[in-house]
């Protein structure tokens, strides 16, 4: 990636971190975790949807991985 894009990416990251800092950033106590337990708040999504989507993306794009579903390649080189 060229230098100009790197600078833009870095500034965007810094700006979003600053924005984040204005929101409440304080780890929740046990009884404050009710919202975090909602299914849509889980990091992993629907298991079969993830498998389908990842397989499709892997067959059409070169990048793969980063989502933790282990193993099992496909013949799409």
């Amino acid at each position: 990636m060229n230098v100009r894009l790197r600078v833009i990416a870095g500034l965007t990251l810094a700006a979003s971190l600053t924005a984040c800092a204005q929101w409440q950033v304080q780890p929740p106590a046990a009884w404050e975790r009710g919202l975090l337990a909602k299914p849509e708040m889980r990091i992993e999504g629907d298991p079969l949807q993830e498998r389908f989507d990842q397989h499709i993306h892997m067959s059409k794009e070169n990048a793969s991985g980063g989502s933790g579903i282990g193993g099992g390649g496909c013949g799409c080189n």
Partner: peptide
């Protein structure tokens, strides 16, 4: 990491 009562973040390296 649970960052707040409303936020979860995850970072990973493979």
């Amino acid at each position: 990491q649970n960052v707040s009562p409303r936020d979860i973040v995850q970072g990973s390296l493979t």
